[in-house]
C-alpha cells in the first residue's frame, strides 16, 4: 500500500448512512463501508433469521431477496444496496400466516438441524419468482447454491414443489 492511499484510507469517514427498506420498513443505518448486508441485518437490525454459514458465498445460508432477487448477503456490502428493498425470512409471513414455502417446509419435514432453512426458503422464493424451474431436475439445479449438510434435499424438493403448486407458479 502506498503512503498516499494509506493516508487516504485513514482519512476516510469511518461510517456512511445507508437507508434500506427491510421487510417493508424503512431503516437508516450508520455503518462502516466494510459491513456486509448479512452483518447489517443480523447485528444492527437484530434480524438473526438470516444465517451466517461459510461467509464466503459457498453455502447459501445467508440468502435474502434484494429488490425481489435472491442473492448471498455475505458477499454484498450494505452500502452498495442503499435504497434497496430487502426481504428476509422474517418478512415472508403475512399477519401471522406462514408463507406457502414456510408451511410446505413444515409439511414435508424439509430440514433436520434447520440452519440452512431460512436461506433455502428465501432462495426458493426467488426461484419461484424467476419462473424458470419446471421439472425436478431444474429445481435441483437452480437450488444448488443452498447446501444442506443434514441432506434433507428430497424433502426440500418436495416442499418447493408443493409451494409452487399452491402459489400457481407465482411469488
Amino acid at each position: 500500500m502506498s503512503d498516499v492511499s494509506r493516508s487516504a484510507a485513514m482519512a476516510a469517514p469511518a461510517t456512511i448512512n445507508v437507508t434500506l427498506e427491510v421487510n417493508g420498513r424503512s431503516c437508516t443505518l450508520t455503518i462502516a463501508p466494510w459491513t456486509t448486508l448479512l452483518d447489517a441485518l443480523r447485528d444492527r437490525l437484530g434480524l438473526t433469521g438470516t444465517k451466517k454459514g461459510c461467509d464466503q458465498g459457498q453455502c447459501g445460508a445467508c440468502t435474502v431477496l434484494v429488490d425481489g432477487r435472491r442473492i448471498n448477503s455475505c458477499l454484498t456490502l450494505a452500502v452498495m444496496k442503499d435504497g434497496a428493498k430487502v426481504t428476509t425470512i422474517e418478512g415472508l409471513e403475512t399477519d401471522g400466516t406462514l408463507h406457502p414455502l414456510q408451511q410446505a417446509f413444515i409439511d414435508h419435514d424439509a430440514f433436520q438441524c434447520g440452519y440452512c432453512t431460512p436461506g433455502q426458503i428465501c432462495s426458493a422464493a426467488g426461484l419461484i419468482a424467476e419462473g424458470k424451474a419446471k421439472t425436478p431436475d431444474q429445481i435441483r439445479e437452480l437450488m444448488s447454491g443452498n447446501i444442506c449438510r443434514c441432506g434433507a434435499y428430497p424433502n426440500i424438493l418436495a416442499a418447493i414443489q408443493q409451494a409452487m403448486t399452491a402459489m400457481g407458479g407465482k411469488s
Binding site: M1, S5, A9, T36, N72
Partner: peptide, 19 residues
C-alpha cells in the same frame, strides 16, 4: 457484483485501501 472481490478481501488475498 463483488462476488469474487469481497471473498478475496475476506481472505486478505486482496487488500485494496479503497473501493
Amino acid at each position: 457484483g463483488g462476488t469474487n472481490l469481497i471473498d478475496l478481501m475476506k481472505y486478505q488475498v486482496e487488500r485494496p485501501p479503497r473501493l
